[in-house]
Write a protein that binds this DNA or RNA. Sequence first.
DNA 1: TTGCTCCTCACGTCACGTGAGGTGGC
DNA 2: TTGCTCCTCACGTCACGTGAGGTGGC
Lengths: 274, 274
Amino acid sequence: MTDLVTIGEFSLMTQLSVKTLRHYHDVGLLEPTRVDPSSGYRFYATDLVPTAQLIRRLRHLDMPVGDVHSVLTATDALERDALIAAHLTKMEQSLQQTRAAVADLRVMLGPTQERIAVETRRMPATLAAAITEAVSVGDLLPWWEDASAELRALVRQTGAGVTGFLGGLYDPALYAEGIGPVTLFLPVSDPVASGRIETATIPAADVAVTVHRGSYAGVDRTYGALGAYVTAHGSSRPGPIREAYLLTPDDVADEQQLRTEIGWPVDSTFVAAE
Amino acid sequence: MTDLVTIGEFSLMTQLSVKTLRHYHDVGLLEPTRVDPSSGYRFYATDLVPTAQLIRRLRHLDMPVGDVHSVLTATDALERDALIAAHLTKMEQSLQQTRAAVADLRVMLGPTQERIAVETRRMPATLAAAITEAVSVGDLLPWWEDASAELRALVRQTGAGVTGFLGGLYDPALYAEGIGPVTLFLPVSDPVASGRIETATIPAADVAVTVHRGSYAGVDRTYGALGAYVTAHGSSRPGPIREAYLLTPDDVADEQQLRTEIGWPVDSTFVAAE
DNA sequence: TTGCTCCTCACGTCACGTGAGGTGGC
DNA sequence: TTGCTCCTCACGTCACGTGAGGTGGC
């Protein structure tokens, strides 16, 4: 039998505010040990303190309340640790991204705004091993990493010839609505399919292309410059953005050396006129 | 004269969703260049792209929309850079805290739960140089750093004798409501006052004390253990928590060596009975 | 009886997202 | 005419905080 304390005392012991404790009761994250039926007073056993502190820590790391609940109700320690480890990994990645964003902001605020070289080109239809899925912007990076690894692995395994750079098709809805269909593809000499990988013919398209140099975190600048260029020449037309990964993290050690070709769909007359 | 594009195209160029762009229009953060009076269609000049991208970056760093607005309307570059630098500093600190929280979580999930040694004691009334202010939990750390530096500086300057450890009084409201009065004080031999620093007599009190070892980030565990101990002996009584900073970051290089004495107010009968 | 702590609504906040229902331009 | 893009409400979400108005225990 352990001691019961009021919500105010429990707040002191756990450094969770009274409002927060009541909220956690409402959503079922942390139930008081006893609730007085007539007064509605909440009473907490002192042995709930470690649980409350774990909750506080996890919330401090921005783990969603639902996930915290999963951690608390995990049946065994292994499962619980796995959930926490997964969240820590996410946190580390987000730290990484923040650092990149800070570095990039410094670049943006710097003196020079690079000019971009744009070239228009007709991309021919291409046979490829491809993965197409609806992806949200938030999940894009890990999705990309998984999908590209899968494509490369399968193609290597089947022995089909690779006939071009790894590429992607990004539906405008991805940016406009935050979620949309994305195709990642690896051009091949022969049909290759397995699981979610299908053989596809990437359609031909007229595009204005430029090469983005450096970290993918800064690709928005190139999107902006390319879009502005295309608009200035009055030739934008709806269709997916095309990317080709000329130099990837697998190829170079330094982020500065990454090269990504961005293709913005344009009118065929624009290509001919050029 | 620069080109106007629709919201959809502008979304592509800036990687901001259409909903987000409309929201930024509503709150006045990013106004379209032209709004068609009959259709309500928004049109954006392409030279707004860098501004939109700056917004996106700053929001990515969780800078509040209001602060982003301040950055955009800053009259000169110096002011703008200062605002951004201030936010970057905040971010760095929060990264630091997250890292500490992760480390601490690992400790909590580890095998051993230390036991704490509790002793009860009557703290005598003490003459001190003191700063008392209403502080919110979020601001506590920087407030503490400023206040302690100010106290030490003034006391050194006046040549008054220091007669005890730097200490603090934390009103329960600070934890229960997230904001409350806090007193930081340095015991002195002679009256010392200047600016927000006043001479005060810290009242006597009966407290159960224990020493928290290690990073202040982990102090909640000690609060919990001490509170549970006091409750188990049925002697808790309302009043501010007292802390005394025995070994601070100024004294030791390693966080593990930090020592903070925590005092929990108890009944005088409890002290006598001990 | 006076304070103090606790209670329950109802609503606000922040930064958008969702979804219904409808309109304009090629 | 058909799609597609755009529009405006109104409401939802997440994790609480704010504030009014009221009750219970020493």
